[in-house]
Design a protein around this nucleic acid. Structure first.
Length: 615
RNA sequence: GGCCUCAUAGCUCAACUGGAUAGAGCAGCUGCCUUCUAAGCAGCAGGCUUCAGGUUCGAGUCCUGAUGGGGUCACCA
């Protein structure tokens, strides 16, 4: 922020002139003054004390007096130990408010000329989206908005995992037990419909496996395993994968389908396309309800063969090496990492191969400077390796790679497990929060003069705000516990609480006369504590955006919006706005009113949350 | 077991990246609606920041170790 930098520069110059030493501006921390002290900006001078070997009792007054003298914005200062608190002048705050009200881009930073691609969502096409995806999608979307506000051009993409054994399982189950049913005939959302067959496959397979365990063949396998320390049940639990690959009839058929798909069998491809289309229809509805869009979809069915050529080129350049069995590896032991396989001995690709190819393809498509992957933290190592490899290959964007790793979402009683049916479905969840919002609204609010559609729209807005805010307020890195009960809370540190502040503002605005002018407040000097707090917070906003973008962390914005709303509620409670005793106070408070509304709406938009006019 | 990561009020989360007396919400208890939307405001209570050392003017934050969660160590994705 400009003022912060100005203060730092002034101090550096003054110290240089007085003591003949040039100090690093980064040594000087300038931050908003904590509420319990008087002042607006605080300079921490401890580091300077150390550097210059001058007592705080001498250095503090010197810096304070200098800033008061040299900066017209600085009115006075006080010092407590190593903290110099600066108070800014009232004209400064007046002109700030005027500036932020008239600047319709306030909060956003100028274009920085860089292009950033962000990948999020990236679902499999065999199951509907669940709570884990929701965290991913909300994070991805919000980050994309935040970095956009911080000056980047943004490309939003997802990689759709539309191939592989999983979708083949759904296809097989549909062929065998589907009776030509379709989402229409079953009156189901497409993704749920396909997911139903995936589950059906797993059920049938589990049944088959259980029966097989009674056979002599199974008995022989068990005895041969030699691992008699384990219990029989434990053994077969772990043996499941091997069974699928070597003995299971269903497993064999599913793998046959996969082979047919890979060899381009027409019937298989048709079915595959048909079922995937159902799934996309379903996903699209979910994305729309979540309010997110993508600029480009990359499909694994199109990218899975990419990367192989680059790997072979890399071998020629000596970046990778081939083992005796012709598999290709990269050696990262020089940076304390393992060897990693890049091509199988039969020459086929692995996940890493494909990711390398996809990265290159994206660069060709868009010429990006930065690439952000929103993927759960269980894949930390994978991305570490991927980035090292792209680095090794001297890819032009390799300095701008970032894995936005977020923690998994747990339920109050533990992990979500599909096997135990504890997975929280995305669509159900949205239905629930909206229903809850409606319930609460029917108790507390009076919007009955609106049309039914208008009312429903408000319930939707409030419910979605509760859900989104509940998820985004948590630091992405951290594992979070999702308590369904708490997620529909509408009081306290919640989305609806913030919306309520906005609605109060809008209600006041509506009561204003048609001439939208606020009146002049330049004579208003008796700024109240609760007003000062709002000014300070509005002033900080661009810095919050910058920091959230630098950290790829929407929780900074969420926390900020909550704090601002809280300060507003207090302001609203403590001072009359329309009924202010003097004209300039009314004008000033209306200005604050409007400024807060503007920033709340802007900040919440960065979180992908809409603001209602009434609630 | 190796590596990575997390641990803050009963619960869910903050703490401007090393700064002032660690803050919010929920849950519990008290007050405040004839006045701009009470989905609000104010107050009470709740803490040896998991433990033990270290670094320095100063540590929830950095270093070492311990304990306890989670992740990852596939020619799976």
């Amino acid at each position: 922020m400009l003022l912060f930098d100005k203060i730092r520069t002034e101090i550096v110059n003054a110290l240089h002139r007085r003591y003949g030493k040039t100090v690093d501006p980064d040594l000087i921390t300038v931050s908003p003054t904590r509420r319990e002290f008087t002042g607006d900006m605080t300079v921490v001078i401890f580091p300077l004390v150390k550097e210059l070997r001058i007592k705080p009792a001498e250095l503090g007054p010197f810096i304070g007096e200098h800033l008061v003298k040299r900066m017209p914005e600085v009115e006075s200062f006080n010092q407590i130990q190593g903290f110099v608190n600066l108070s800014l002048t009232i004209p400064f705050w007046h002109s700030f408010l005027e500036r932020m009200l008239s600047d319709n881009r306030y909060g956003a930073w100028p274009k920085n000329g860089e292009k950033l691609m962000i990948e999020f969502s990236s679902p499999n096409t065999n199951k509907p989206l669940h709570l884990g995806h929701i965290r991913n999608i909300l994070l991805g979307w919000s980050c994309s908005k935040i970095v956009e506000a911080a000056g980047f051009s943004v490309v939003r993409v997802q990689v759709v995992n539309d191939r592989g054994i999983a979708i083949c399982k759904s296809m097989l189950a549909w062929q065998q037990f589907g009776n030509d049913e379709t989402p229409d005939s079953a009156k189901m959302k497409g993704d749920h419909f396909v997911g139903k067959f995936y589950v059906l496959f797993e059920t049938k397979f589990a049944e088959e496996y259980r029966q097989w365990q009674e056979t002599e063949e199974a008995e022989t396998v068990w005895k041969k395993s030699g691992d008699q320390n384990d219990k029989r049940v434990t053994f077969f639990k772990e043996y499941k994968n091997t069974y699928f690959n070597e003995y299971s009839a269903l497993g064999r058929k599913a793998k046959e389908l996969l082979q047919k798909w890979e060899s381009g069998d027409r019937n298989t491809l048709e079915l595959w396309e048909r079922m995937n289309t159902w799934v996309y229809d379903g996903f699209e509805q979910t994305y729309q309800r979540l309010g997110v869009q993508f600029d480009k979809l990359y499909f694994e069915s199109e990218t899975w063969k990419l990367g192989k050529q680059e790997i072979l080129d890399g071998v020629k350049k000596g970046k990778f090496y081939e083992k005796e069995d012709r598999s290709v590896w990269v050696d990262l032991s020089h940076i304390d990492m393992d060897e990693k396989i890049l091509l199988r001995s039969d020459g086929t690709s692995v996940y890493m191969t494909q990711d390398i190819g996809t990265a290159m393809l994206r660069y060709r498509d868009y010429g990006i400077d930065r690439m952000v992957y929103v993927v759960a933290d269980e894949q930390n190592y994978h991305f570490k390796v991927l980035f090292e490899i792209l680095n090794l290959l001297d890819e032009p964007y390799s300095d701008g790679l970032h894995h936005l790793a977020y923690g998994m979402v747990d339920l109050p009683d533990g992990k979500m497990k599909s096997r135990e049916g504890t997975v929280v479905d995305a669509d159900d969840l949205m239905d629930e929060v909206i229903a809850e919002a409606k319930k609460v609204a029917l108790e507390k609010s009076d919007i009955s003069d609106l049309t039914d559609a208008g009312q429903e729209e408000i319930y939707r807005t409030i419910g979605m705000a509760a859900l989104k805010f509940f998820i985004l307020k948590v630091n992405p890195q951290k594992r979070m516990i999702f308590d369904p009960g708490a997620s529909v809370d509408m009081q306290g540190q919640t989305g609806p609480y913030i919306q309520n502040a906005y609605v109060r503002i809008r209600s006041i605005e509506r009561k204003l006369d048609d001439n939208n002018s606020l009146g002049t407040y330049s004579k208003y000097t008796d700024i109240q504590e609760c007003e000062k707090v709002l000014l300070n917070q509005l002033f900080i906003y661009p810095e919050v955006v910058r920091k959230a973008a630098a950290d790829y962390d929407p929780s900074h914005v969420a926390g900020y919006c909550y704090d601002l709303a809280k300060s507003y509620h207090r302001f609203y409670h403590d001072v009359p706005i329309l009924g202010a005793d003097v004209e300039e106070a009314k004008a000033f408070r209306l200005g604050l009113n409007r400024g807060v509304a503007k920033i709340l709406a802007h900040g919440m938009d960065l979180l992908g949350i809409e603001m209602p006019e009434r609630m």
